[in-house]
């Protein structure tokens, strides 16, 4: 868990470094009066590495995956909810009252 967090932080750092070096690269291009074609290969590599690290952290840090299939062990419907809107009270429960006393304290 902590390792995953560190990986994510590292990914963000690498990304920040890539941003910084791109800005510096463009600054130096302006000085040399050249056109910007694309970022240097080192920056592209950094982007890829940071993408990988951030992906890793985003998939691992929030927790494990939950099953979404209907027939998965955890998702299986075991019982329908009791329809409380239609519940009636003159049932056999009247003859078998619960075996405990409850009382409101005023």
């Amino acid at each position: 868990m902590r390792g995953d967090m560190v990986a994510g932080a590292l990914g963000l750092l690498v990304l920040a470094h890539a941003v910084y070096s791109t800005i510096r690269y463009r600054g130096s291009l302006k000085l040399m009066e050249e056109e910007f074609v694309r970022a240097p290969p080192q920056v592209l590599l950094e982007l890829l590495v940071s993408l990988g690290l951030c992906f890793w952290a985003a998939l691992r840090v929030p927790g494990s995956f939950l099953p979404i299939l209907l027939d998965a062990q955890e998702n299986r419907v075991r019982q329908l909810s009791d329809d409380l809107d239609f519940m009636i009270f003159n049932h056999r429960g009247k003859l078998f009252a619960p075996k405990f006393e409850v009382k409101f304290r005023a």
């Binding site: 062990q73 955890e74 998702n75 419907v77 075991r78 019982q79 329908l80 909810s81």
Partner: peptide, 8 residues
């Protein structure tokens, strides 16, 4: 609906 996880 009550799933297995809910029931547990």
């Amino acid at each position: 609906m009550v799933g297995v996880a809910d029931e547990m």
